[in-house]
């Protein structure tokens, strides 16, 4: 079992090495990168925003409930929603969702190409298939996923506002004061560090699972599921280590 893990890890590293080779034609890779940016970015924007909106809203309501009959100032609702969103919820929850949506899609797309001999056809044409299929996805993810996380954190703060201000938990001025209170730009850096790391995990793990899929629709389903499961586990592990790295 341990040897299997080492074998797979070695294959994963070798695939990444091949994937970052010099492109045969930059314009073709760029075209594919733009297509991937559109698919990952525009294709995931709505679901990411919906989830972020509700996360912000629930965080605000829960915290407002905890603050009832306490001496903690009400503006802390905005402050907590902002920090918890930026530091943890926006990057982690967004990327867990993207692992399910984008990761499984990448594994299924590449795995399907493997099964239909599209990858073999490209190989025989002389295309470095690992590079052509993985590099544009990786570049697109590393650009678009941090932007999605950024959008998620903004929407989440707005969600907190919508849930708490009209309900009378907190006034408009108090919420805004809380959001602006003791802002630490370092947390935004942490958010982007997490987003970039998680984007790399989602793309590399999913592409790896898809690229080495064996023949058969059952294997394709397994690869797609494994892409999500492994990405999720690695995202949570990564989250823990980044938290340690940035805070201890």
């Amino acid at each position: 079992m341990n040897f299997n893990f080492l074998h797979s890890f070695g294959k994963y590293l070798l695939l990444l090495k091949t994937a970052f080779s010099r492109p045969e034609k930059v314009s073709m890779y760029w075209k594919e990168t733009v297509r991937q940016m559109h698919d990952i970015g525009i294709g995931s924007l709505v679901i990411v925003c919906i989830i972020a909106l509700f996360i912000g809203a629930v965080t605000a309501i829960q915290f407002a409930f905890q603050l009832q009959d306490s001496f903690v100032p009400k503006f802390y609702i905005g402050y907590i929603v902002r920090d918890i969103t930026i530091i943890e919820l926006a990057p982690t929850i967004t990327c867990l969702v993207l692992a399910g949506k984008v990761g499984s899609n990448m594994a299924a797309e590449i795995g399907g190409m493997r099964q239909k001999e599209h990858i073999d056809a490209m190989e025989i044409m002389g295309v470095n298939t690992a590079a052509f299929l993985i590099m544009p996805k990786m570049i697109a993810s590393l650009i678009v996923i941090p932007l999605l996380v950024c959008a998620a954190s903004i929407v989440s703060i707005v969600g907190g506002y919508i849930a708490s201000v009209p309900q009378g938990w907190v006034t408009d001025a108090e919420y805004v004061q809380g959001v602006r209170y003791y802002f630490e730009p370092y947390y935004v850096s942490m958010m982007f560090a997490k987003a970039i790391t998680f984007a790399f995990i989602i793309t590399s793990v999913s592409c790896f699972q898809g690229y080495y899929v064996k023949r058969g629709s059952i294997e394709l389903g397994v690869a797609s599921t494994q892409a999500v499961v492994y990405s999720d586990i690695l995202i949570l592990l990564g989250d823990y280590f980044i938290a340690l790295l940035f805070t201890v």
């Binding site: 001999e117 599209h118 056809a121 025989i124 002389g126 295309v127 470095n128």
Partner: peptide, 16 residues
């Protein structure tokens, strides 16, 4: 190998 493959064409069983 990739350079040589510029001189290679292949028709697949399922067309691919």
């Amino acid at each position: 190998v990739r350079t040589l493959r510029m001189d290679v064409g292949m028709l697949f069983q399922g067309s691919a």
